[in-house]
């Protein structure tokens, strides 16, 4: 319990802060006409793997554009695209693969999509690595508890692609793909669940995006790289929703993600920048 005077003081500071923020002039996205003072909530639907990076991007975007509140719906891209097709009130959609963006675009609601980052597959093991996995070949050791994302989740499909490629590679045993799949104990419904359960030590290894193994979870897992020739560089497309009631801000958000600032921010979270040079 805080002393009463301190509580009043804190309340006053918060109120003054809120008033001050409300009075600062809004900074609209560059290169567009400014609408009247705004009170906008922007609904951004973004792949679960973007959660950390986009949360910070949203914070920056709101700071730059006062009166614009960014609300995120982070989930598997397949779920988000389904929701958009069913008419969910999204303003922006950032997908973890092209297929789900194309599916969403099938609704006729999406603006033109641009690839904004690339991501790549990596093997993670708990820091203490109880199963002693050090190479990709070790994943085929019988009796391991291995986690993949479900096939409907983009990273789940990329993991299967990797296993298929490795199985055909002379550096791996011909039964590699089948041996590794026999170790899978669960196809998790999203990639963050794979990271969480490996970080908890409940599984011996998991296949996730590089970007899922940064941030607070990074201390709890070790990464084993997958070489480029076996890897899939996942392209993330972003697009505004054309029937958005706040199209101006939706386009502004997309432009911010593609801007040099936005790209640098995404790189901090382990993504590979992919945006074409933005005109400014």
């Amino acid at each position: 319990m805080l002393p009463k005077t301190l509580r009043i003081l804190l309340t006053a500071i918060v109120l003054i802060g809120a008033l001050a923020a409300g009075h600062s002039p809004g900074q609209p996205p560059a290169g567009a006409a400014t609408p009247a003072p705004v009170n906008v909530t922007l609904n951004v639907y973004a792949a679960a793997s973007l959660a950390a990076a986009f949360t910070e991007i949203g914070r920056r975007f709101s700071a730059d554009n006062s009166g614009v509140k960014v609300v995120f719906n982070f989930a598997g891209s397949q779920l988000l695209s389904k929701q958009i097709v069913e008419g969910a009130p999204a303003d922006v959609f950032a997908s973890a693969n092209t297929a789900h963006m194309t599916a969403a675009a099938g609704s006729g609601r999406m603006g033109l999509a641009t690839n904004f980052v690339l991501n790549r597959l990596v093997v993670i093991v708990p820091t203490d690595n109880p199963a002693g996995i050090t190479t990709l070949q070790d994943l085929a050791t019988p009796g391991l508890q291995l986690l993949l994302a479900a096939q409907a989740v983009p990273v789940g499909q990329y993991a299967l692609d990797f296993l298929a490629r490795a199985g055909a590679d002379p550096g791996f045993s011909p039964t590699y793909q089948a041996d590794v799949l026999a170790n899978v104990v669960s196809y998790e419904d999203n990639v963050k669940a794979v990271v969480a359960k490996v970080a908890l030590g409940e599984a011996d290894a998991g296949l996730v995006y590089t970007t899922d193994a940064v941030g607070p979870d990074a201390a709890l897992v070790k990464k084993i790289a997958i070489p480029d020739n076996l890897n899939t560089l996942a392209a993330y497309p972003i697009a505004y929703v054309a029937d958005s009631p706040q199209l101006f801000w939706a386009r502004g958000f997309v432009r911010f993600v593609l801007s040099r600032d936005g790209q640098r921010l995404l790189q901090n979270y382990g993504f590979i920048a992919a945006a074409p040079a933005t005109k400014k």
Binding site: V184, S186, Y187, E188, D189, A193, K197
Partner: peptide, 8 residues
Amino acid sequence: TIIFAGNF
């Protein structure tokens, strides 16, 4: 179930 038992 999905958290404790996973999905297989």
